[in-house]
Each structure stands twice: as C-alpha cells, then as structure tokens.
C-alpha cells in the first residue's frame, strides 16, 4: 500500500487541496473563464469602435434609433427603456450578492429567496432585450437606400420631424411581388416585401413639396445633414431600394454595420444572460433540495454569482458604447 517514498512534501505543497492566492480551485477557474470572456467582449466592442471610427461621420445617433418605450406608442422616449434595463440588471446583481452573503451565513431560506429574485430579474432583462430587438427589426419610419448603400431618410419640413413613408408615398396601380432568388439573378432576393415600391416612394416624394431628405452625414453640430428641396430632388435619383426596419444587410436607421454590431454584441450578451439564468435555476434547485446545506458551504452560489456579476459588468460597457457615447 505504501509504495511511494515519503519525502515530506505531499501534505504541504504537492499533496493537493491547497489554495494558492487564497481562492479554491473552482473559484479560480471561474475567474480565469471570466477573464477570457472579458477579452472576447472587449474584442467585439473594440471592433465596434473600429468600424465606428472608420465611418465616424456617417454613424447613426443612438438616441434617434432607440426611441420607444413599451405601451407608449408614438411617444419619443430615447434611452429610458435601456436605463430601465440597466437598472433591472444591477438590481438582480444586488440580489445575487445578497444570496452569496446569506450563503456565507448558512441561511438556506434567504438564499432561496434571493436566488429567486435574481432569476426573475434576469428573465425581465432577457424579455426586454427581445422586445428591443423586435422594435429595432420592425423599424420606424422607413427609408431608401442609394446605389452606394447610403441611407436617405425623410423629414417633414413644416414640423421638422421625421416623416414616415406612409405619409407621402403614392399608391400606384402597379403589381408588386416579393423578389425571390428563383426569379431573375440567383444571388438577388429580398427577405421581406416593403409596404411601398421604390417607384411609389419616389413619385410620392416628387409630388409632396414639404418633404426633405436627410443624409447620414453628420454636420458640425453633430446632427444629420438636412438637404433643401432642390438638393433633395437631385438626391432621390440615387435611390436604389426601399428599406423598412433593420436586418444584417439593410438598416433604415443608417449604416448597416451599426445593425450588425447591435445584433452581434447585444445578442452575445443576451445569450450570456440567458445561460446565466439557466445556471442560476440549476443552483436554485440545488439550494432548495439542500445540496449545499449538506456540503457545509455555499461556495457554488458564490461561483455562479461571479458569472452573474460579470454579465452585469459587460452590460455596463455595452450600455455606454451603444447607447451613450
């Protein structure tokens, strides 16, 4: 049984079970994971910065993109909903810390309550993000895209507000079908059929003198350039197709890369929140059946807590770089 030579070091250093840096194996590995994940997110956010700096004069203004609040149709409420989402996530972070704290004191009942509240908070956040996506994809006013892929938006000259396509587009007696890849050139098709054809928008624009075109170009005031009627009439000739809403290829709010990064980064973050909720649910049931009570410590709650806070931490940066800056 005792085939190994006892050098006297098994128990102290190489025998296992010791904790360098005062952290257990599991906790240290969670920190390593968080570090690598943080670098992944940084990569995404810096790539966003790269594209933004590249097209710094064309980039959409976030305040004009995210203006909706649920159940308040037609009310301009930039930022309020994201602020609400941020608060929900911070709040669920707080209940998570409280769960960890209760775990240290071996209070099973409090851990259950706080874990439950954390899960609810996470679910609200994921739901809000889904709503935000749906609103973004559906679109707002509609726009046209030029041959070079630039977006032209419409403004009512009298009110100074954005004009929706429906306000001025003419209904022409023409038959319009969705363009499928099976008809015409194989690599050209459209994902959705726009409510107006390009022809209807252009004709309606020509017939309505109080509609002006707004280009993507930012002026010195940091606002989008508004063309006068003469320049608008010349600009509309560059229009190539109608765009409603946003997807990975076309984006009515402005530069298409904005939509791409929005879907990719908030999507990746939302996926983290979702998996965080799933992990929290697993731990929640473990707490209920008393696994950690028998184990004698609630370190597992602390580890998932670290992941949950990390998700919150990432959101703080996403919030700043997508909605504020």
């Amino acid at each position: 049984m005792d085939a190994t030579v006892n050098t006297g070091t098994e128990d102290s250093v190489w025998g296992g079970g010791n904790r360098p840096l005062g952290a257990s194996y599991g906790k240290m590995m969670m920190w390593f994971f968080i570090m690598s994940d943080a670098l992944t997110f940084s990569g995404f956010l810096v790539a966003y910065g790269f594209s933004r700096f590249k097209f710094i004069e064309l980039w959409p203004i976030a305040d004009e993109v995210f203006t909706h609040f649920p159940f308040m149709h037609g009310v301009e409420a930039p930022m309020y909903y994201v602020a609400f989402m941020t608060f929900v996530l911070i709040m669920s972070s707080v209940t998570m810390v409280l769960a960890v704290d209760a775990g240290h004191k071996m209070k099973q009942k409090s851990v259950i309550l706080y874990m439950f509240l954390t899960i609810i908070g996470g679910a609200i956040f994921v739901g809000s993000q889904a709503w935000e996506w749906a609103t973004f994809i559906k679109g707002d006013h509609g726009a046209v895209e030029t041959n070079s892929g630039r977006i032209l938006q419409f403004v009512n000259a009298e009110t100074g507000k954005r004009a929706a396509l429906a306000e001025f587009a003419k209904t022409l007696p023409e038959e319009r079908v969705k363009h499928e890849a099976s008809e015409g050139v194989w690599f050209e098709s459209e994902g959705y059929k726009t409510s107006y054809s390009l022809n209807e928008v252009v004709e309606g624009f020509k017939a309505t003198p109080n509609i002006l075109i707004r280009t993507e170009q930012l002026n010195e005031e940091g606002e989008k350039t508004l063309l006068d009627r003469k320049a608008s009439l010349a600009k509309i000739l560059e229009a190539n197709q109608v765009v409603e809403g946003a997807n990975l290829i076309h984006n009515e709010y402005g530069h298409r890369l904005f939509a791409d990064f929005f879907f990719f980064i908030t999507g990746f973050h939302g996926f983290h929140v979702f998996s965080g909720v799933v992990i929290n649910v697993i731990i929640f049931f473990n707490v209920i059946i008393g696994t950690y009570e028998r184990r004698g410590h609630y370190e597992m709650v602390e580890k998932v807590g670290l992941y949950w806070h990390f998700v919150d931490l990432v959101w703080v940066f996403v919030f700043t770089f997508f909605y504020l800056v």
């Binding site: 840096l21 005062g22 952290a23 240290m28 920190w31 972070s93 707080v94 998570m96 810390v97 960890v100 602390e302 807590g305 670290l306 806070h309 990390f310 919150d312 931490l313 703080v316 940066f317 919030f319 700043t320 504020l324 800056v325």
Partner: peptide
C-alpha cells in the same frame, strides 16, 4: 465623462459585488 463613469461603475461592481476587495492582492 460617460467612459470614466462606466469605469467607476465597473470598479464598484468588481470590487464589491465580485468581492475583489476581499481577495488577496496578488489574485
């Protein structure tokens, strides 16, 4: 200002919620 405030928030989330304040300096 936005970026600095973000870093401030990140500091308090990491230090107090993620307990970095209570960890060993080396870690």
């Amino acid at each position: 200002i936005f970026i600095i405030l973000t870093l401030v928030k990140a500091y308090y989330i990491a230090w107090d919620f993620m307990h970095l304040r209570d960890e060993k300096t080396a870690l």
